[in-house]
Nucleic acid binder design. Structure first.
Lengths: 236, 236
DNA sequence: TCAAAAGTGTTTTCAGTACACCCATGC
DNA sequence: GCATGGGTGTACTGAAAACACTTTTGA
């Protein structure tokens, strides 16, 4: 299988992992699910959840499996998509390990409890890892930055923002997702017009939600549209 | 290095390759560089150029090396970016081989000549591979489709279209790239306004190019802008 | 003078923005 | 009533589309 190495140059077998950037919005802040490393290297540092791709397993299946193991949630309830591959020779001191990063977006999930397969997983605000205040193991800081940039641009052209909302949700819930991820305030009335006009983005349930104050808000579920047309552009 | 398999499940070492989707515009048609497979599996079928990632080599470096080996052109003269990873267990009958696909865009290049390291590489129109008329080896048909979709959307938000043009080029050259890749006719006057107004997209050389007929066209080089703002949207 | 391609100007339309205003609820 | 957030109406603005028109070349 690796006989080609003699003609193509030195090629040793490698390991392939998947790493997950699982994002959610909690308390008006974007959070990412991190696990604390129990072993060297980077023992004690937070890292993205992930693991080896098993024999006979597709990349998507490995990502879905790890997602379920770490969050306890069925992967089909979250938006899960491949981000890109990372393979710097020195990214893991144990050897040549390639990783395929996945981006998962979901509503505020129950914090995975210790004692399960999850190793001390916890939701952390993304801020300190983006500005360099805090460190992540391996090249996970870079992966997180890439994932966030992908998420930001996905909000413009696709309907994934709704994946951040637990159903049923209001237009204001959805707007808060955009405001948190893009870190810009949006005009509530114009936002409502755009998302309700977009075909098959939001499906009204007919119900309303009452809060402490104010008029009850109409409730929606995610529609089956995946692309958002027209797109919802961030400020130029 | 693979000791973790006992805890994580069956994990055997794997091979990692890079595959290149090298696109260019020739004779008003989008072409992709393909090589004919000389060995099993898929002997005789066209395939994307690619090869194993070597020890100590980054993914980007492996892609650039393969690009130079197959086209004879310096990689820095082409736009080269990672597309995504593919790792279906059955995608290569020889074993578990993951591949990281790259998208390369360039001007009409000299056809790589046989006798070099390149194995009978040739430019082929993409059409028959997209509509299923012709087959590619492995899962390269899917990779080509994904790459083309990426290229199409990249034209909207980035300045990569200029990578298809040999410098210096005219606004009409650039417009033809958009028309060929998107397969839609564009209004020449509105197109000109948009691309010349975009900051740092085009740098006028001051020269003009004369054709058989018509007024000489101003010549441009690529500017240093990477993002195109405002974006150039395809018809809704 | 004509054909052909480059390039400019103008009108119309339409989407995004800003913001005034009305609605429905709890207190 | 009043505060609070939900939701509608509307005028303003700027970019995109359509297309008439001018410019500059070769034949």
């Amino acid at each position: 299988m690796f006989g080609a190495s003699t003609r193509l140059g030195p090629v040793s077998p490698a390991a392939v992992t998947v790493d997950l950037v699982i994002l959610t919005v909690r308390e008006e802040t974007l959070h990412v699910l991190l696990v604390e490393r129990g072993n060297e290297p980077y023992r004690g540092l937070p890292a993205l959840p992930g693991g080896y791709v098993r024999d006979g397993e597709t990349l998507d299946a490995a990502a879905a499996r790890e997602l379920e193991e770490e969050t306890g949630l069925a992967a089909h309830r979250l938006h899960l998509e491949q981000l890109r591959a990372y393979g710097e020779p020195g990214r893991d001191p144990r050897g040549r390990i390639f990783t395929v990063a996945y981006l998962a977006l979901g509503p505020e999930l129950p914090v995975p409890s210790a004692g399960t397969d999850a190793r001390a997983a916890l939701w952390s605000p993304v801020g300190p890892y983006l500005d360099g205040t805090d460190e992540l193991a391996f090249d996970h800081g870079m992966i997180l930055r890439d994932a966030l940039e992908r998420a930001r641009s996905q909000l413009e052209y696709t309907t994934v923002a709704a994946a951040f909302c637990a159903e049923p949700f209001t237009v204001a819930d959805l707007r808060r997702v955009y405001e948190v991820v893009w870190d810009v305030p949006l005009d509530p009335s114009n936002f409502r017009r755009k998302v309700t006009k977009a075909e098959r983005f939001l499906v009204p349930t007919g119900d309303r939600r009452m809060l402490d104050a104010g008029r009850p808000a109409a409730l929606y579920r995610r529609g089956d549209a995946r692309l958002l047309s027209p797109p919802l552009l961030r400020g130029a």
